[in-house]
């Protein structure tokens, strides 16, 4: 085990995989000398050179498309988007091409593409640079959607993403890059997709959160424990595929479901989880599922206002109590 930041955990897996497989290359904006604006490709230009660390102009639609093409002829591109918000520029390449090629070409083409980048709040980057894009991607079949919340999850899931023969959108969080955690040194350490992380066991309520809300869910659980409420905290880790079986098993035990995410509440992944749990465990529910998410408001530039839009720990505590009728 080594203690490292979320950003360095990502960089190290990129490096280790590129050393093993010459077909892997990285492409994106400012990833060369600068090493990416969050340092996820730091020092990699020196080691791998300009043929494998390719700097691009500001042209997301083009270089994501280039990645789709390269993947379909046998390379394993990892495309970095400086901000996940910019995936909107490349939506046709991601959702209309990458997501559908393997199916529409009768399985004759594989698309081992990773599109990775950061999203979310924390820097006051305003409405076009602070969004959560995962729910939009979840609605189109053919794309895997990965959301690591810790350095170890970032490392283990990125390795699985790079080795996957299908397109994966690997979403990082800008406010997590500097968080530190233990990461296994094993160069084969990988976390399979579709396996939720049982972060903390509990009996009274199942609380699901990811990214920043992995940590905030734990904070809420600490507060609630002092009041005698035992919270089971889970992190879905991958939204496509979603480990609904583990979530349902937990809700069957607790009878209560609360989901929390930074993404907007309307049609956020919590909505899908709540619906699926209601379908599969209706008879076990002791209260309607509670969904917590950002208000339907463009994320403000002002940091104080940004916090007013996204859920806070006290909102989670209140949501759990609402579910328990306390």
């Amino acid at each position: 085990m080594s203690k490292k930041t979320y950003a360095i955990a990502i960089r190290d897996v990129l490096r280790e995989e590129m050393r093993k497989d010459p077909d892997i290359f990285v492409m994106g904006e400012d990833i060369g000398v600068q090493g990416g604006i969050f340092g996820c490709t730091r020092d990699m230009l020196k080691e791998f050179g300009e043929k494998r660390i390719i700097q691009t102009p500001i042209s997301e639609n083009s270089f994501v498309g280039l990645g789709v093409g390269a993947a379909s002829v046998g390379l394993r591109p990892v495309i970095e988007l400086m901000y996940m918000d910019f995936i909107y520029l490349a939506m046709d390449q991601v959702l209309n091409q990458a997501a559908k090629m393997r199916y529409m070409f009768g399985g004759k083409v594989k698309v081992p593409l990773v599109v990775r980048g950061q999203q979310g709040i924390g820097r006051g980057n305003a409405g076009q640079h602070s969004q959560s894009v995962e729910a939009l991607l979840m609605n189109i079949p053919g794309i895997k959607v990965v959301c690591p919340s810790t350095p170890a999850d970032a490392a283990g899931l990125l390795r699985t993403a790079i080795r996957d023969d299908n397109p994966v959108v690997f979403i990082e969080h800008k406010a997590l890059y500097s968080t530190k955690g233990e990461v296994p040194d094993d160069p084969e350490f990988a976390i399979p997709f579709g396996k939720a992380n049982l972060v903390r066991e509990g009996k009274d309520v199942t609380l699901l959160g990811n990214f920043l809300y992995h940590g905030k869910a734990l904070e809420a659980a600490d507060i609630l424990e002092k009041e005698g409420i035992s919270v089971e905290v889970m992190d879905p880790r991958t939204l496509v595929p979603l480990d609904i079986d583990s979530i349902v098993a937990s809700v069957k035990k607790t009878g209560h479901l609360v989901t929390v995410h930074e993404a907007h509440r309307t049609m956020g992944w919590g909505t899908e989880v709540a619906a699926a749990v209601t379908e599969k465990a209706f008879g076990y529910l002791d209260a309607p599922p509670v969904r917590i998410g950002a208000k339907m408001c463009t994320l403000p530039f002002n940091l104080g206002l940004e916090n007013a839009v996204v859920p806070q720990v006290e909102d989670i505590v209140a949501g759990v109590k609402q579910s328990l009728s306390l």
Binding site: K203, D204, E227, G228, I229, L326
Partner: peptide, 11 residues
């Protein structure tokens, strides 16, 4: 048992 532990006495 789960329930007694879960629910604060006051509630």
């Amino acid at each position: 048992e789960a329930n007694t532990e879960a629910v604060p006495k006051s509630v």
